[in-house]
Amino acid sequence: MRWTKYLIWLTAAAAVYGIVYLLAHVGIVSRFFLLTMVQICIYIIMALGLNLITGFTGQLSIGHAGFMSIGAYATGIFVVTFGKPVSAALTELWGDRGVTDVAYYIFILTSLAVGALAAALFGLLLGLPTLRLRGDYLAIATIGFGEIVRIVLLNTKALGGASGLPVKQSVDWATAYWLMLLSVVLVYNFVNSSHGRACISIRENEIAAETMGINTTKYKVMAFALGACFAGLAGGIYANHMYLVHPNSFGFLKSFEILVMVVLGGLGSVTGCILGAAVMTIMNNVLAPFPELRMIIISVLLVVMMIFRPNGLMGATELRLPFRRASATGAEEGSGHDL
């Protein structure tokens, strides 16, 4: 039963990949379209990470771009430092053959893992002391963290300082796409595991969860570190695709945009935040010529959403395959969040 479901999703994912690949190969879609594709993938991964923290565990974090920049810089430094020697060594070993490219690709994937792990480490370091704080206070502490990261990066000459860190482009949209799918599967399985249920119980009622024997600190820190890890992965993809990593691309505004994606799609819904991230990214790119208008629309949308549908468009429900709805157990509707 489960396998047919996975098979359907996998086929759908592969079909999307195939169609885009074909279109890109024939040259029907523009480079702008592929760039948007990569951005959507990056933001979906970011939103998934933040959704783990804010949507499922109920801890408000507005410093998510800080983790993204840590991932981007860690990956960038790794690639800039080891890229040339590794590539030279591989060419010497195998010459100009396919196997060299494959090995270099594995090196790039390693760099992404480095970024993700670095961000997770910072998530752990920040989470351990600050997760004792509640609601607004945690939000403020995370804003402070994001700003500190930005200022430190701006002032560190070794990391490029205010002129940013140039990184060669070595990740195309296909890699971003498959990594995005991997993240979706990981998050989906985490949320539906006993760990995920523990996180959801903390969101619903922390005191009750603690009384039921759940180590709330452990799960909050776990969610925080995992969320940071995904942000780091997204940052790594960003670094390897966008040519330049700059501290100011990961400011308060970016953290806020990601929060909007999660809130718009639905706090506590994996499919919801995928939709939210995709819609917001497309809207951002379409409205890019009118930056002020774009922000006005986003802010009004947000206020109106909060007044009329405070749990996001999807709430905590998931999109399901329509013909399978009869067999779905249906008991997964989340109640209101208590933040």
Binding site: L60, L259, S299, M306, H337, L339
Partner: peptide, 28 residues
């Protein structure tokens, strides 16, 4: 005012929304 009985998160996000509205409204 419409959010006085809703969650802290909703109120906080609204406040950020208003903040951006004022900033970019003025910019416009």
């Amino acid at each position: 005012k419409p959010l006085r009985r809703s969650t802290r998160l909703a109120a906080l996000i609204t406040a950020i929304g208003v903040s951006f509205f004022l900033e970019y409204g003025m910019m416009f």
